[in-house]
Computed example of a mutant assay.
Amino acid sequence: MRRITRIATAGIASAALALSVTACGSDKKSDTAGDAKGGKAAIAYDIGGRGDQSFNDAAYAGLAKAEKEFGIKGTEAEPSEGEGDPDKVQRLTSLARAGNNPVIGVGFAYAPAIAEVAPKFPDTTFGLIDDTSKTGKNIANLVFNEEQGSYLAGVAAAKVTKSNTVGFIGGVETPLIKKFEAGFVQGVKDTNKNVNVKVQYLTQPPDFGGFSKPDLGKAAAQGQIDAGADVVYAAAGLAGSGSIEAAAKAKKWAIGVDSDQYKQSGLAAYKEYILTSVTKDVSGAVFNLIKSVQDGKPQSGEVRYGLDANGVGLSTSNPAFTEMTEVIAAVDKAKADIAAGTIKVKTAP
């Protein structure tokens, strides 16, 4: 049975941390996890945690699939609001000591913690999603060409807008989220240079609340809609659900991110207005990493997922979108041109 653990945060004694892990049934044999086959694997969630209808939920789907196929025991560790690197170090250390292999940090915020913890557990594979800045023999950097999927979203937005104004909302202004912005804006402008793109970020580092607060996404989207936008694309994690709500209530188009948000149960009330979503195969990346450990050939180094292997893409779940034959044709052409190298998508605005 899967366990969701809220592992001790800053200010809690390390003895209490050890006790909490032991209470979950951990094995304190050594600092090496060994083979995961018939054993355990863990994911430590990013800001917003499971239930964000987006990034974290995609990671969970990969863990759930691995549990079903390999019979492993999956553990999920939730973040705490306002936590720092020491909290993440404690969390990853506890998961590794409990015998989980691999241990996967969902999001670039785990980079410093994984760099600190991984050398202490050389027989455990650590997965780091969305970051290549920290590397090691037992670290797999699971990264995506987000700008490529976002380019396709820009093509679609430019094709469907009637006001010639569309919006982009980024959760936090980081290099990763600016990849989404860069691809989207380029896709819009390459399709119709007369379309205005309004860009807004919800928070600035070190405030990462822009990934976890739907009210901020809702307010930002409403502001863009009031300014004339009739398509809004948000790359903002849980905060993006607020953007989708605002667009739907205004009967404007929303573009989702990371997961196929048209299919997310928590957004079912708004799905009619979710035109499409820029998908990242986070679930596949998590599953593939667990499988590699199961097979005795753990991944390490950069493992990149791009448009060519459907690592990123554009969902077609909304029937209204698939019926837009001219839009679909433009998206398909752009996808082919990116794959052929005819279109080079920027990774920074």
Rank of each mutant, 00 (worst) to 15 (best):
L238F: 15
V172F: 04
D35F: 12
E147S: 14
Y110T: 05
A348Q: 14
V257G: 12
N288Y: 06
G25C: 01
I169T: 06
T191L: 05
A320C: 01
V303T: 08
K263G: 08
D190R: 05
G62E: 07
F70K: 04
N288H: 06
S54K: 10
T9Y: 11
L289V: 00
A140R: 06
A13Y: 00
V155D: 12
Q294M: 12
T32I: 07
A239C: 08
S283P: 01
G170N: 08
K179A: 04
L307F: 11
V278T: 10
Y151V: 09
I114A: 03
G49H: 08
G341M: 14
D295T: 10
A336D: 11
G34V: 13
Q90Y: 01
K189T: 10
R91I: 13
N288E: 14
K249I: 11
V282S: 03
L275W: 02
I255H: 05
N192H: 02
Q261A: 07
F126I: 02
T93A: 04
P175M: 03
R304L: 12
G237D: 05
M324D: 10
V293M: 03
Y270F: 15
G171I: 10
I177L: 15
A113S: 10
S133P: 06
R97T: 13
T75D: 11
A248Y: 05
S30R: 07
P214I: 08
S259H: 01
Q90H: 04
K162W: 02
A227R: 10
G223A: 13
V103E: 11
A115W: 01
Y273W: 13
S317L: 04
T191M: 08
Y60L: 14
K65Q: 14
T316W: 02
S315L: 09
A41V: 04
A320L: 08
Y151G: 07
A140S: 10
Q204Y: 07
V89W: 00
G84A: 11
N194R: 08
A309Y: 06
A156L: 12
I114K: 01
G11D: 08
A157W: 11
A269I: 03
R3D: 07
G183R: 07
N288T: 09
A10W: 05
T342Y: 06
D207M: 09
G48I: 01
T124V: 01
E78S: 14
R2F: 07
A246I: 09
A41R: 04
C24V: 10
G256D: 04
L275G: 03
T322Q: 07
F55T: 03
L238G: 07
G167S: 12
K37H: 14
E272T: 14
I114D: 02
K280L: 04
K213S: 07
A309C: 03
V278W: 00
E67F: 10
A109D: 15
P112N: 13
I255E: 11
V172S: 01
L95H: 08
K137W: 05
V106T: 09
V331H: 06
D332M: 02
S259W: 02
K344F: 06
A41I: 03
D207Y: 08
K28F: 12
S80H: 12
S243T: 12
A61G: 05
A236V: 09
T325D: 11
E272R: 08
I7W: 00
A156R: 09
